[in-house]
Design a protein around this nucleic acid. Structure first.
Lengths: 217, 217
DNA sequence: TAGATTGTTAATCGATTAACAATC
DNA sequence: TAGATTGTTAATCGATTAACAATC
């Protein structure tokens, strides 16, 4: 097993995109692709694509290009999508329910095994066959089921205590939709933040700057 | 009005974060901050913060630091949050309803003025006092109300036609939760993509690499 | 074989960090 | 004034692009 060393943040940020575009191409029936062609589709340079791919190994063939099906397999491995990870959802509000019902966790190797909310209103309602449970059952559930990851869809003010609890119960990874900065207190935790409001502010910035006549594409 | 020139993508990506942290500090009652202190909180270097701020002007005072309230005002202006932009939501499924009901559009200068879905099941249901309308009323609505931005919460297969329609109706900006690549066909459009599945794959990658013993924080 | 395209090294470009004079 | 901290220039570092020999 080859040890990956020092993959830069820039490269990492492009990996899911490669996977996504390659899956699209494959489902359109395409079998092979050159770095040049992929570059045109994705808006990168061919050089960059070859550099990125060669962080992980020589997947191509001179004079031919890359086999798309093989590449998809390689990237699935690189991203760890084939590795089973159990997940729980904390917070069954609008966003939590949307994430639980729409996100294809399975495609990424995650299995959702529990949903929790402090509001008794939701208790017993099922999403994808998983009943929403009360917050106070989290400890027992985690002790028994040892989930790997928690999706945090709860308000920022409730997040700190919840993270303390989950960390103490052995949860090491977080998909964090709240605005609580987990890394500050727990630098060793695996954290991926989703800040929808940051994204909307970025759009606001883009719009403002396009309005002033600066071109922006 | 000073023309902004050449703000790099790296700087832009940090702007919402600055705004968010500064608002937090302000709501905690803090009045001033030095680049050093902000750097410690945000995990940046003080140098970088001063460089970033000075893309937009000299907001600080030697020997004192930065006035937080003033900075928030500056960043609101930079991000265009004070500029009113009207928005419509396309797609009132789980995710669309979550975004419509939870996102504070107003804080970012956006006003949600219409919600549309092709499923007649939703017709008439109100979210935040805005009734969900049928898809076929979009043309008339846009002609009359000229929305600036559309939030796309519809499936990728329906996105291309919808974007064609919206562009033809004068919509120039998109907050795009679908996986359709708008920029490819419309490079001049203002687009901010939200790819939740990319984010989840990134977490999968982080988890996989933490498991192999590589440390990752 | 000839043509195409990779893998990889070298060159360029840009972003981050360090340093320090200016100044509040 | 002395101390602190900015604004800004210079140095470093890393990422992207270009080039080309290797090879299918």
């Amino acid at each position: 097993m080859k040890t990956q060393k020092e993959i830069s943040a820039s490269v990492i940020s492009r990996l899911p995109r490669y996977y996504r575009f390659l899956c699209d191409l494959y489902s359109n029936g395409q079998k092979r692709i050159s770095s040049k062609e992929l570059a045109d589709i994705m808006g990168f340079t061919a050089s960059q694509i070859r550099q990125d791919f060669n962080c992980f190994g020589g997947f191509g063939q001179q004079g031919y290009g890359y086999n798309i099906e093989q590449l998809i397999g390689e990237f699935a491995g690189i991203l760890g999508l084939n590795k089973l990870k159990t997940a729980i959802l904390i917070g069954a509000g609008n966003l939590g329910r949307a994430v639980a019902s729409q996100m294809s966790f399975e495609d990424k190797g995650f299995k959702l095994i529990g949903i929790f909310d402090c509001d008794p209103l939701y208790k017993g309602i099922k999403i994808r066959d998983i009943p929403i449970s009360a917050d106070d059952s989290i400890s027992d559930f985690c002790t028994e089921n040892k989930p790997d990851m928690a999706v945090l869809c709860l308000p920022a003010d409730k997040a700190p205590d919840m993270v303390d609890l989950l960390i103490s119960l052995g949860v090491k990874s977080f998909w964090n939709f709240s605005h609580y900065d987990i890394h500050r207190k727990y630098p060793a935790a695996n954290v991926e933040n989703v800040h929808l409001s940051d994204s909307l502010m970025t759009l606001s910035f883009i719009i403002k700057n396009s309005d002033t006549g600066e071109n922006y594409d």
